[in-house]
Design a binder for these strands. Sequence first.
DNA 1: TTGCCTAACAATCGATCGTTTGATTTGTGG
DNA 2: CCACAAATCAAACGATCGATTGTTAGGCAA
Lengths: 204, 204
Amino acid sequence: MMTAATNRGKSARGGDNRRRELLEAAARLFSTRGYEGTSIRDIAAIVGMLPGSIYYHFKSKEELLVAVHEQGVLQVMQAVESAVDKAGPDPWDRLTAAAEAHLESLLAENAFSPVVTPQFTKAFDDPLRSTLIAQRDEYEAYFVSLVKQLPLPPGTGRRLFRLALLGSLNWTLTWYRPGGKRPATIARQMVDLFRTGLDPAAGT
Amino acid sequence: MMTAATNRGKSARGGDNRRRELLEAAARLFSTRGYEGTSIRDIAAIVGMLPGSIYYHFKSKEELLVAVHEQGVLQVMQAVESAVDKAGPDPWDRLTAAAEAHLESLLAENAFSPVVTPQFTKAFDDPLRSTLIAQRDEYEAYFVSLVKQLPLPPGTGRRLFRLALLGSLNWTLTWYRPGGKRPATIARQMVDLFRTGLDPAAGT
DNA sequence: TTGCCTAACAATCGATCGTTTGATTTGTGG
DNA sequence: CCACAAATCAAACGATCGATTGTTAGGCAA
């Protein structure tokens, strides 16, 4: 799905390099300094362009944000789906593969993806906010289906499990430092945490 | 610990009501619209004060933020320590009590606490950023001690467990809607999730 | 060559930002 | 009632914000 008027009716020819540069610069700044903390002038300076020129490519700062967010969701979703497709048929293996790809995307250098977190989304109000949430819901629905495949004891809160797992993964953004464990390792250990539990005397 | 010059040398008489009003208004706005998204004028309007008058109570917007953050950390920490003290001696019960109090504080109406999340902290740069992180680390250290008491099989990653649990709890801020399960219930179920695990065929 | 389209520049708009300054009100002790 | 300090008002400062406008230089097609 494409939010329409996201690009200027130009056909999908490969020639829109500056537009991609703008998206990438905006993504980096939005994810590090926040949306309000980033000015059009900051973005223009990075790509070597005058502030006004940005409005040829995007008709407003909000539209630029929507485009960045859309791109971020798209990148993460593609990475996750591709990883799951490569995994075996076991539902836990597939969920683990998804978690690994999810976290790797979020911590990747290029940094489109951090914008995907709903924490980022929270601050906006409602025309814009709904747009971003809708983009993201499409992605989270994929995790719903992955969790649904899990053979869990009846009565288990699948929704809470999904939210808790994604919370653990997404929260990694706030404490991860490069040089530590690889993201995929962290993701796998987290899934195992939920799967096997910690208390040797559990279930009493 | 008090960051010094946080108040204007006025003794701890109870009479600084407007200051508290300012702190509360700022907390609500900071946590919903973000720091950059909140203007001094917005805060002044809420408490019925002209923008310039705020500078009688706080010498800069940054100092106001630090004071709000300090207050937020303090409130959560006190709620958690009080809850743990009331709990029994069992380490898992104590951790559960902490998780419940933590999440209840974060979702409380008054809304000082959401500012405590490091997600919020991330956007600032370094003189300010370090101050906020230091305030928060003091709080997280308390969870380190709670997890240390847990009787876990040797070789378990206590650090990852703590981060994963706090991630699940903190992430609740992004999806919780009033009218659903009570925060304490959510917190308890999350701790149980980590404690007992989900896979009936686990440990293979 | 002519004509159009893309992409950017140069300059500037009104609004809003954090902050400062100096006068003025309000409350309180002598 | 007066003096003095605490608290707020009133007004404005320079800077920066997102956005608009008019123009121009290059590329490609007819």
